[in-house]
Design a protein around this nucleic acid. Structure first.
Length: 421
RNA sequence: GGACAGGUGGCGGAGUGGUCGAUCGCGUCGGUCUCGAAAACCGAAGUACCGGCAACGGUACCGUGGGUUCGAAUCCCACCCUGUCCGCCA
């Protein structure tokens, strides 16, 4: 959500920001007009209301004095003012303005390169080089051959885009999640959180998935299943005025994520790359405005640490204007090399949302007499389902078994290799 | 799910139709007193929005949304939330 006062003050800069996002700059004029209409109606109604308040007070006095003539005269005046007030509906005008504002994405950081789609993204650095493993198989082929990954049964239970993991692969998923969460909570200063997986609309609105992206969400009754733990974790400070976060508040959670993947029909239908349900470790930071840029770098390094420790090949991408998410001002994606698929795939996304989400959820801190909107950041640390894929494809052996990465063995009961049961 | 009881300012707690944004207490902040502190006393303090360079003025806010009324914290309706008991349950 944008500050309408900033838009008023800097309409040209705002229009330019919209253009970078590929939006029609005429939208800026539409917003300006909606704002002017609302303010005009507000001023008129408040003036009329002030008049009414004064008259009502006098009626009270007249009644006490038992002055019936005066009371009747005042009542007549009230009727006039009330007639004047009819037809003024600033609330409706404000709702229209808010609707326009709520649909606007965040303004982009100057660092963000121009570009319409992922081809405009910029690789910043990489760790390791893509390896070609002769005869490399994809994770689903490996998993099914091991008898530990079952898409057919999942489809029978739930439909497409679900999977049943068994035995050592089920355990590997659990090990990855536990290990990552332990890493961030024990070494990277994050506080472990176990949040609700069902939240109400206002919560999803706060992080920006609503109202624009309702189609991507699953709904249970009136509540929404979280598409990422970013939603409940960021909203921990919603509607709050917290003490000044001199050091950032850092939250981490391991949760399932639920996504309808409405726009992804026919994409990544094979394997468990794109599922309706997957596990993810999410990192969220709440900072002061002046700290968010540094925290963004730190958070991204925390995610990279996971990939490095797993011995995966990865690279950091700076997303361009067209690829940066709705709520984000600047996003780094981490992509991991999948030897089986022979492709880079996103495994983490770290975003600085600045005060965009904070405005939507009214999250502030006190600095002197001022209430200042916090900055919010979120990043995957990392997606467990995709980490599982990357580990399987990277550590596959010619006989179809999978070597367990060193760091995960303590979480695997010492298991070194996943073979057929 | 059922039955009661509640939701008022940072907290506690008054207020059942008219100068109520709201008595009072605690806590907070400033001052007097003190070598300093405590106590006591005096005083100040809510949030948001609109207009204004500002001083300041206006409006709204007593869980949320409607309604009745010239006028609602107060009356009516719906909803949400909390507590207690019962039922069910991991």
């Amino acid at each position: 959500m944008h500050d309408i006062r900033l838009i008023r003050a800097e309409p040209a800069a705002f229009a330019a920001g919209l253009a970078r996002r590929g939006l029609d700059p005429a939208l800026a004029e539409e917003i300006r007009a909606a704002d002017a209409a609302w303010r005009e109606a507000t001023a008129a109604r408040e003036a009329a209301q002030a008049e009414l308040n004064r008259l009502n007070r006098e009626i009270g006095i007249a009644r006490k004095a038992q002055d019936a003539a005066r009371e009747a005269a005042l009542r007549a005046e009230v009727a006039t003012v009330q007639a004047r007030m009819r037809g003024l509906d600033p609330d409706e005008l404000r709702a229209r303005l808010d609707e326009l504002l709520a649909a606007l994405p965040n303004l982009l950081d100057p660092d963000v390169p121009d570009g319409r789609d992922e081809t405009g993204n910029v690789e910043l650095h990489r760790s390791g080089e893509p390896r070609v493993i002769p005869g490399a198989k994809q994770h689903d082929e490996l998993g099914e051959a091991l008898g530990l990954m079952d898409f057919e049964t999942a489809a029978r239970l739930s439909g497409s885009r679900f999977v049943v993991l068994k035995g050592a692969l089920a355990r590997l998923e659990r090990a990855l999640g536990q290990w990552m969460l332990d890493l961030h909570t024990r070494q990277n200063g994050y506080t472990e959180v176990s949040p609700p997986y069902l939240v109400h609309a206002a919560t999803v609105y706060g992080t920006g998935q609503l109202p624009k992206f309702e189609a991507d969400l699953f709904k249970a009754g009136e509540k929404y299943l979280i598409p990422t733990a970013e939603v409940p974790l960021t909203n921990l400070v919603a509607q709050q005025i917290i003490p000044e976060p001199v050091t950032p508040l850092r939250f981490a959670a391991l949760t399932p994520c639920f996504r309808s993947e409405a726009g992804a029909a026919g994409r990544d239908t094979r394997g468990m790359l794109r599922q309706h349900q997957f596990m993810k470790v999410e990192l969220v930071s709440i900072t002061r405005p002046e700290d968010s840029a540094a925290e963004h770098e730190r958070m991204t390094r925390c995610a990279e640490e996971v990939l490095t420790a797993l011995g995966l090949t990865w690279r950091r991408i700076l997303l361009c204007a067209g690829d940066t998410g709705f709520a984000s001002a600047k996003t780094y994606d981490l992509e991991v090399w999948l030897p089986g698929q022979g492709a880079w795939r996103e495994i983490s996304s770290c975003s600085n949302c600045r005060d965009f989400q904070a405005r939507r959820m009214n999250a502030r801190f006190k600095r002197g007499k001022e209430s200042v909107f916090v900055h919010t950041l979120n990043g995957s640390g990392v997606a467990v389902g995709r980490a599982l894929i990357a580990v399987m494809e990277t550590y596959q052996n010619p006989d179809g078994s999978i070597t367990v990465p060193e760091v995960l063995r303590p979480w695997m009961g010492g298991m070194e290799r996943i073979g057929p049961p």
